[in-house]
């Protein structure tokens, strides 16, 4: 079971999320799937930091295994942005739902076209 590393799992998770975006018509599921993809990236970033004999880039420590702090700092930012994006898309979804009364991308499109003409 050596191939189950953070890296392979995150690549798998990313594409599971992508499948959710492409294959599901439910708008909520789209937002959730994008969340899954972001989680996959966070996992990837956090597992690439502890490999082998990396030299810590900021403080010159020798002889100690140190986790690279940069990915962690980046991922805090990424998580914050992810939260903001989810909040904005859910807010938009609420007004979309009030307008069209459905959670289905396809039905929204059809209704929009009917209203247009």
């Amino acid at each position: 079971m050596e191939w189950i590393t953070g890296e392979t799992v995150s690549i798998l998770l990313f594409f599971i999320g992508l499948f959710g975006v492409v294959g599901r018509r439910n708008i909520i599921k789209t937002v959730v799937s994008i969340g899954i993809m972001e989680t996959a990236i966070i996992l990837f970033f956090l597992t690439i930091q502890g490999e082998g004999e990396r030299v810590p880039p900021i403080v010159p420590l020798v002889g100690e295994t140190v986790a690279d702090p940069l990915p962690q700092a980046l991922m805090i930012t990424a998580i914050v942005i992810g939260v903001a994006v989810t909040a904005v898309s859910l807010t938009m979804f609420i007004s979309l739902y009030h307008k069209y009364g459905t959670t289905n991308w396809h039905k929204v499109e059809v209704k929009r076209r009917e209203q247009d003409t």
Binding site: F14, I34, M37, V85, S89, M92, Q115, D116
Partner: peptide, 19 residues
């Protein structure tokens, strides 16, 4: 009236690309 759909598609498509 059309704008919420347009805005939402724009947002989600671009967010997806940025992942």
């Amino acid at each position: 009236s059309r704008s919420i759909y347009d805005g939402m598609v724009y947002l989600l498509v671009n967010i997806l690309a940025m992942t």
